[in-house]
Design a protein around this nucleic acid. Structure first.
Lengths: 217, 217
DNA sequence: TAGATTGTTAATCGATTAACAATC
DNA sequence: TAGATTGTTAATCGATTAACAATC
């Protein structure tokens, strides 16, 4: 009965994103233990911290089990660890970055990844003048080495930070080599087999969507 | 009658994002004129290019007017220019970046902004050791100068790339100084007056949301 | 005229929120 | 027992898609 809920297909994608939010918020709370009068936290308290409706929170959590105690709330630390497991953040993931431009280098330099279990194993580029240079203590490799590297190192996630023109081509090689998920920063929709999980991050839309609201001010 | 549609409040926020998509796709199409047999493009052609349902496309466009000809399609170039105007991309916008870390520097270096009418006027940081250094031909300024700068230069948009701890504080100063919109890369929900347009870009969620799907593979 | 495609209404789908019995 | 809060169902809301009359 409860197992039906664990069937991934029935869970709204936005729920997963909110789960990340709850996890982050609980992590913050449980780290500063002193300020925690009770080890329990209610959905309305989480609501205050995240801005998400308490009924929404309870429903999101209920997809994955019964974590709370009626009349009491959720055991904060326990729930945090539970969410960590659900989100797969208790594991270590191998990541490569393709594209050693401004954004690729910035992502490589982001310290938060390691703490979250994302290990950046290599950065690739096509540009001969970049190959061999070091950024953030990692040598830029030729993209020709990518296929072999993904296979040998069992890379899970590829971060695509190349120009739109080459994104599809690079993504195809990634998939062929056995990558399971791609975070795509190139402004185009990739056509890939459905078993590959793709997250598109379109920074230009963040900017262009803003000016619509600004233009009559 | 048609004016009612122009009432912003009635337009779904996702429509604006899709409008950016259509605009980008039409821009690409109309630039390579030669490949354009007809100057008209149908909603189903746009659908093939963007992956968005043709009925959705017609509905999104209809919020803003009647741009098409029944039986023919939409005049591609005309529609592109119309969308550019609707999105406010025919104007020039003054932008500042706050936070000269990895991501801040990367955004500063992104050439695409200028082409889209986003002029980055300054980059600020609190770190004494960074102030005065130059990145991408712009001198890093002390954050103490931000308030005055926003006022004098009539800055429209602030890009917030500071640690979560200082984000709210910096955002408050931005708003006090007259900024109208903020793109927030810090992983927290800012509390700001409702007339300020905020776009949150939460890169960690892009990563953490992925591993949920990966964990049973 | 016949074929094509828009603009718009109606039907469908999915996600959010309210309400409340269960229960600590 | 009275008060609080969950888990879950039902009601609401909003967004997507299908269908079709209008019309080029």
């Amino acid at each position: 009965m409860k197992d039906l809920n664990l069937n991934k297909r029935s869970i709204p994608p936005v729920t997963i994103n909110r789960l990340c939010l709850y996890h982050r918020c609980l992590e913050k709370i449980t780290e500063q233990k002193d300020s925690l009068f009770s080890p329990y936290i209610s959905s309305s308290e989480i609501s205050h911290l995240t801005g998400i409706n308490p009924a929404q929170i309870r429903k999101d959590l209920a997809y994955f089990g019964e974590f709370g105690l009626r009349g009491i709330g959720y055991p904060a630390r326990e729930l945090q660890l539970e969410l960590k497991k659900i989100l797969g953040l208790d594991k270590v993931w191998s990541v490569i970055i393709v594209g050693a431009g401004n954004l690729g280098s910035a992502l490589l330099g982001y310290e938060g990844f390691k703490r979250r279990g994302f290990l950046i194993k290599a950065i690739f580029d096509r540009d001969r003048s970049k190959i061999g240079r070091r950024i953030h203590n990692l040598r830029i490799s030729s993209i020709d080495k990518m296929e072999e590297f993904i296979k040998e190192e069992h890379i899970d996630i590829g971060i695509l930070v190349v120009p739109a023109e080459s994104a599809q081509e690079v993504a195809n090689i990634m998939v062929k080599s056995g990558i399971k998920a791609i975070i795509n920063f190139a402004p185009l929709r990739l056509s890939l087999p459905p078993e590959i999980k793709v997250n598109n991050v379109d920074l230009s839309i963040e900017f262009e969507g803003l000016t619509y609201h600004l233009k009559m001010c």
